[in-house]
């Protein structure tokens, strides 16, 4: 049976269709500004890592993380920097570090963990590190944190 009709995007024939942009408040910052900001944070994180200050580095990179359309470069830089932080943390310290983060930062961290897991083989990090962080973050922040990652349209 012909099933091609199932792939027709019927929403384009609807004048009153709900747009993605109506579902969340857009980032007021300019994409260029966001990219500059992401690069500056990358440098700041390096200095924090040199001092071995993992919570400080995580807070710097996760607060006001780029979201929404047109900021893909900034998102990639942020993800790259974050994965470096995750990689350099000793596995015994992870729980303590997560407990020190604010609720907002925990939610954003979960978003990046899922983004990282959606891009297997990308970046210089093994899957077990990401799964280790995911396990410990879920222990601290609960499944509610995962639910918020799935519902939040401000994707990172």
């Amino acid at each position: 049976m012909d099933q091609a009709f199932r792939k027709i995007d019927i929403d384009i024939y609807d004048e009153d269709v709900l747009q993605e942009s109506e579902l969340y408040e857009a980032d007021p910052r300019d994409p260029v500004e966001v990219l500059e900001d992401a690069k500056q944070r990358q440098a700041a994180v390096r200095s924090f890592l040199a001092k071995n200050d993992i919570p400080g580095a995580l807070t710097i990179i996760l607060d006001n993380a780029p979201y929404g359309p047109n900021v893909d470069d900034a998102k990639i830089i942020t993800l790259q920097t974050l994965l470096t932080i995750l990689n350099t943390t000793k596995s015994t310290e992870i729980t303590g570090v997560i407990k020190g983060l604010s609720l907002d930062t925990q939610d954003t961290l979960m978003k990046y963990l899922y983004k990282g897991m959606a891009m297997p083989g990308w970046g210089d990090i093994s899957g077990s590190v990401r799964l280790g962080w995911h396990e410990k973050l879920t222990e601290v922040a609960g499944v509610g944190c995962i639910v918020r990652t799935m519902t939040d349209r401000r994707t990172v």
Binding site: D107, G142, V143, G144, V147, R148, T151
Partner: peptide, 26 residues
Amino acid sequence: ASHDSSINIVYPNGPVIYNIRMPTLP
């Protein structure tokens, strides 16, 4: 209460919105 596992309490004068995030399901 919304599907991000949180409940919000709204005081319209202000407006002040208290958002309680839960570690559990919605």
